[in-house]
Design a protein around this nucleic acid. Structure first.
Length: 488
RNA sequence: GGCCUGUUCGUCUAGUGGCUAGGACGCUAGGUUCUCAUCCUAGUAACAGGGGUUCGAUUCCCCUACGGGCUACCA
């Protein structure tokens, strides 16, 4: 059975690149009715960020991904672990890593290394100045194993390195990149166990992926060069290796790796800017994958049905905000107004607007189809809540019309609206009635509608006057038109 | 420097040994319209370059150029 995992380090908030890696792993599992798991790789003690694990999980949940196994959050947002292959947090699996480095040591597939960081740096500098390939020079590789063990037991600071063969090739058969070969002699004797007793990524992934029974390892392209080391480890242990898929990176407009220096990168950033998960998921899924036909709109459920790892493209994709905005507007447009109101509510509260006395569904409907983000909806509907609007007098005058004319037209519509019963105060009734009235007076629509709309919104661009009347109600509509007249 | 890797409109991409190289976003123009947005119509624009192989290459091979990744007791 297919079993995939997302295995981030909790060194910060979940990055959109990480979200895509997680998404592809998730989709592959779902497509094949398999299991998707979350493992936390916290072997670097120095880079641990408080709250990182919680953020990763809540971001995945926001996106709609369900974690079948591994690390998750309970209803109180506390970290829990579920499944039979745990623990799923690497810092809780140290014994296991020690057991398997010992095995490697016994097999002579690994060795103690007592070189200091200073010496290592010296070696590297020397290699660089001589334009030689960099890497460990193998000095401790030749120490007698019994002797080395004695020194280690005596407390001498050491790491454990894997013993890479000096000849031959190691091939990676990658689901997206195909067959890639590496010359063994150029592969470093990777440190497996650090001086602090923690494993490096390379040892920990292999041990964990094996014992957690993953069938596929889906990760970023940056891991491709170290994959031969992992493959060699599988061979040394005699374990069956999983299938690999290395995803290309996501880059910015300058074709550089997405980074905090150039705008939003964390999922959290996009949540806060008012992007809906449907849009972010659809957009990100299509950065490097498409169904092979001309469909562009896919829900998570549809992606689960159609996703195909072999169709993932090899080239890096530019993260293009314009297209994301288009997706976001599209998905906002297709939400029910009840759902849209629900999603906008926290943004209203966050901006300090008191929504208690208002029907949010009618208000957000004004901007549905206009705004690209939930934040824009809130920003663009602020005028509805205002007690008093300020007007720019010239804005109230339509095109080549005059101030006198605008004043006159506003007075006329004011009188007309005053006579409309409150029970008929709805767009569906107001619109045909007013349009008919305008025609009977031989005015142009704009003569009346432009100043009226500006009087109701105070804005150059806004939803139409009838929608505004309907949302504001008769009393507020009358009051605003009256105020506007006095501004001219 | 070494190793690995990528390259179709500005962007995301489809595509195949023979097509007017398709779609989407963006942009431009027109229509609808009181504004904005929507919607409709049209337009814009690409096979990185050079060699081969071939009757024929965007497609297969080689080289070059330009990107990107890795080269830690970080992941």
């Amino acid at each position: 059975m297919t079993k995939t995992r997302f295995a981030p380090s909790p060194t910060g908030f979940l990055h959109v690149g990480g979200l895509r890696t997680a998404l592809y792993a998730y989709l592959l599992a779902r497509k094949e009715s398999g299991i998707f798991a979350l493992r936390i790789e916290d072997t670097d003690q120095e880079r641990f960020v408080e709250g990182g694990i919680e953020n990763i999980i809540s971001s995945l949940k926001w996106a709609g991904m369900h974690i079948d196994e591994g690390v998750d959050l309970d209803e109180n947002n506390l970290i829990i672990q579920k499944g039979n292959c745990g623990p799923y947090i690497q810092s809780q699996r140290l014994e296991m890593y020690h057991t398997y480095t010992t095995q490697l040591l016994e097999q002579q597939d690994a060795y103690y290394c007592f070189c200091t960081k200073d010496r290592l740096e010296e070696v590297r500098n020397c290699q660089q100045t001589n334009k030689l390939p960099t890497g460990y020079d193998g000095r401790c590789r030749e120490i007698d194993p019994a002797e080395a063990q004695k020194r280690a037991m005596a407390g001498e600071t050491h790491v454990i390195r894997m013993k890479m063969p000096k000849t031959g090739f190691t091939a990676v058969d990658d689901l997206v990149r195909g067959h890639v070969e590496f010359k063994n002699e150029l592969i470093d004797d990777q440190v497996l166990l650090k001086a602090d007793g923690f494993p490096t990524y390379h040892l920990a992934v292999v041990v964990d992926d094996h014992f957690m029974e993953f069938t596929h390892v889906i990760r970023g392209e940056e891991w491709l060069p170290s994959t031969p080391k992992h493959i060699k480890l599988y061979e040394m242990f005699g374990w069956e290796k999983p299938k690999f898929a290395h995803l290309s990176l996501m880059v910015n407009e300058q074709k550089q790796k997405l980074s905090k220096r150039h705008g939003s990168v964390s999922v959290q950033d996009f949540v806060e800017k008012g992007y809906v998960p449907e849009a972010l998921i659809n957009f990100i899924a299509f950065l490097g994958w498409n169904p092979g036909d001309e469909r562009e709109i896919f829900s998570l459920q549809e992606l689960e049905q159609e996703f195909d790892m072999t169709k993932v493209s090899k080239a890096a994709a530019v993260f293009n905000l314009e297209k994301l905005n288009w997706y976001n507007k599209h998905y906002i447009m297709n939400l029910s107004i009840q759902e849209l109101a629900k999603r906008c509510e926290p943004f209203y509260l966050n901006s300090g607007i008191d929504i208690r006395a208002h029907d949010l569904t009618k208000i957000v409907a004004l901007e549905q189809g206009r705004a690209s983000t939930l934040v824009e909806i809130v920003e663009h509907t602020g005028f509805v809540f205002a007690e008093h609007l300020e007007y720019e007098p010239e804005l109230l005058v339509w095109k080549k019309s005059t101030a006198e004319d605008a004043k006159e037209k506003l007075s006329l519509i004011l009188e007309f609206l005053k006579n409309k019963p409150e029970g008929e105060w709805a767009k569906e009734i107001l619109e045909p009635t007013v349009i008919e009235w305008i025609a009977s007076k031989d005015f142009g629509n704009g003569d009346i509608l432009w100043p009226t709309r500006v009087a109701l919104s105070g804005l150059k661009n806004s939803p139409g006057p009838f929608e505004l009347m309907s949302v504001l109600g008769k009393e507020k509509t009358i009051r605003r038109i009256l105020t506007a007249i006095n501004y001219i």
